[in-house]
Each structure stands twice: as C-alpha cells, then as structure tokens.
Design a protein around this nucleic acid. Sequence first.
DNA 1: GCTCTAATTTGACATACATCTAAGCCTCTT
DNA 2: AAGAGGCTTAGATGTATGTCAAATTAGAGC
Lengths: 115, 115
Amino acid sequence: MSLATIQCCAPIAREPLSEGDAAELATLLKAVADPVRLRLLSMIGSHTGGEACVCDLTDAFELTAPTISHHLKVLRTAGLIDGERRGTWVYYRIVPETVNKLGALFAPLAEPATV
Amino acid sequence: MSLATIQCCAPIAREPLSEGDAAELATLLKAVADPVRLRLLSMIGSHTGGEACVCDLTDAFELTAPTISHHLKVLRTAGLIDGERRGTWVYYRIVPETVNKLGALFAPLAEPATV
DNA sequence: GCTCTAATTTGACATACATCTAAGCCTCTT
DNA sequence: AAGAGGCTTAGATGTATGTCAAATTAGAGC
C-alpha cells in the first residue's frame, strides 16, 4: 500500500465514476434506498442463524404479504439476499459480498491519522 | 474493542434497524441512489482542491443546467455536499461526515481474518 | 385427491421522481 | 445602468415505484 492510498475520503471521492459503474451502483443503491427494505435487510442479517423466514418478516410490518414479497424480490434481484425454500417456508439470508460493495464505496480509505 | 465486535457482517446486519433509523437512512440513500448524483458526488470529491464549480459539472453531462442544479440540491439537502458562492461561480464540496455514515452502515466490522 | 397455509405473481392505482422549458436572481463588466 | 453569463426556481410532463386486492403456485397433512 502506497502513501497515495492514505487520504481522507471514500473511494467514491477518489476518482470520477464511469457512467457504467455509476449506473450499476445506482441500481444497487436503489434497492437499499427504502426504509422497509433496509429493515428487512437488517432483520435478515441479524436473525439467529443468519437467515429469516418470510413469515417472521411479514409479521414485523404493517404491510400485506405481497408487499413484503415485492421488497424481498427487489433485494434478491439486486443480489443483496438469497432465498431458499425448505418445506413450507422460504428462508432468506444476506449475500455479504454485495453488501461489501456498498461498504467499499463509502468507506474512508484511512482514519484521520494524526490530523 | 472487544471480541464481540469482531464478526463477519456489516452493522446493518448486526441488529434490526428501528423504524426511525431506517427512514432516516433511506432518505440519505435515496439521495445517492441515482447515477447522475453518484457521478456528481465522485466528481466533486475527486476534483482538485476537493471542490468543483457547477460549470465544470454541468459540462460533463448531456443534461440541462436546471437538471444538474436539481441533483445538486438533492445532494445538498441530504447533507452530502455543501455549496458556496464565490463571485460568479458556485462551488460544491463533499461533507465527509455524511458519507461516512453510509460507510459505517455497510462496512464489515472486521476482515475475514483467518478464514 | 382435497384442503389449509405460505409465498409469489398479476393488475390497478396513487404518489414520487427525473427531466425539460421558461422565467427569475445574482454578480461581474462595460 | 444596462447587458451578459452562471445558477436556481417554478411549472409541466412522462416514467418509475410502493402499495393493495385478487388470483396463482407450492408444499404439508388429512
């Protein structure tokens, strides 16, 4: 790691995003830019075993099952979660690699060391 | 820092977000969940001196000045950038604290150490 | 096979949003 | 003070999106 990598700002502020990268990242960000989907994501990720049943998620909101299902589909299409049917129920879990993409985009490259 | 903080997942996956926190974060994320605004943010942040003139930004897109102005306003309202008029031109710069909020939300709490 | 529950899909609707044109405001220059 | 350039605001319009009700698929158990 060179000194050049030590600076104050996130990767998004290091160099201009290409049009293509921006479009791809915007799609990912749109998926999480909703209060219900943020809560779904955090509920799935923090649930025991790292996975949650749709039934648990639906009960936690004052929304209909189709609406929750819609939001889960948006998250799954974006690659943020992955679903699996086991018997009667469907379980979702987080895809950490995709979440990390967002973390990398906004994470500061270094702490404000001595300053 | 205790051992408990060393785990695989981002803070969003640590515990369920409250309704209020989710709403606040969603507002912030909506501001960046647009390809034009992502590029604006990265162009401003990576520009020499950490600030960019609106004129530079407008020329970089095939969009009208009012549209760019609108996007800048969205970013500014979200607290992601801050603008200042100096003479004829208006300069924008990034507000790192706000960007860091997003970084903190999605950043893994620890590297996949030995695994 | 039939029924019940879990979850998704479809279609409709109201709202939110990205974009443009036209108009207005601020600053510098002449 | 009058004009010109830079930027924002206001209003209009087409598209995208969040939500629900109704219909559909899938599995479990009787």
